[in-house]
Amino acid sequence: SKDAAQYVYDEAQKGVTQVTVNGVTFKFDNWQKLLKYAQKLLN
């Protein structure tokens, strides 16, 4: 959902490398990768 994507995006902006959405945890090597993933979700 857009809300989940926005949440992931906001978390990535904080510099975190993992985020949990609806009980599913996504882990990334660095926050830039998390940010890229979030941007994909938002598009």
Rank of each mutant, 00 (worst) to 15 (best):
G15Q: 10
N43K: 13
L34G: 00
Q18T: 03
Y7W: 13
K40I: 05
K40S: 06
W31G: 00
K27P: 14
N43E: 05
K2C: 15
K36R: 07
V21C: 05
K2T: 13
G23F: 15
G23P: 01
N30E: 06
Q39E: 06
D10E: 11
S1D: 11
A12S: 08
K14R: 08
T20P: 11
V16G: 04
V8T: 07
L35Y: 04
T20I: 06
G23M: 07
A12M: 11
F28H: 02
Y37W: 05
K14M: 12
Q32I: 06
K2S: 06
T25W: 08
V16A: 09
K36Y: 05
V8H: 03
A38M: 12
T25V: 12
V8M: 03
A5N: 07
Y9C: 15
F28W: 10
Q32R: 04
G23C: 08
Y7C: 15
T17F: 12
T25K: 05
Y7D: 15
V19M: 12
K14C: 15
W31I: 10
Q6P: 01
V19L: 13
K36T: 03
L42S: 01
F28K: 04
N43L: 05
V16Y: 06
Y37D: 04
L35R: 01
Y7S: 15
V8G: 08
F28G: 01
Y37G: 01
D10V: 13
Q18G: 07
Q13N: 11
G23V: 15
N22S: 13
T20G: 05
K40M: 10
Q13R: 07
F28V: 09
L34Q: 00
W31E: 00
Q18L: 12
G15A: 12
Q13Y: 05
N43C: 15
Q13G: 07
A4K: 13
D10H: 05
A4E: 11
Q18R: 02
A12K: 04
K27E: 04
D3W: 06
N43H: 03
K14S: 08
V21A: 14
K36E: 08
D3Y: 02
K2E: 08
L35G: 00
Y9T: 13
K27S: 14
V8K: 09
K36M: 02
V19H: 08
Y37N: 02
S1T: 11
A5L: 10
D10G: 11
K40Q: 05
V16M: 04
V8F: 10
D10C: 13
A4F: 08
L41P: 00
K40T: 05
V16K: 04
F26C: 14
S1K: 12
Q6N: 02
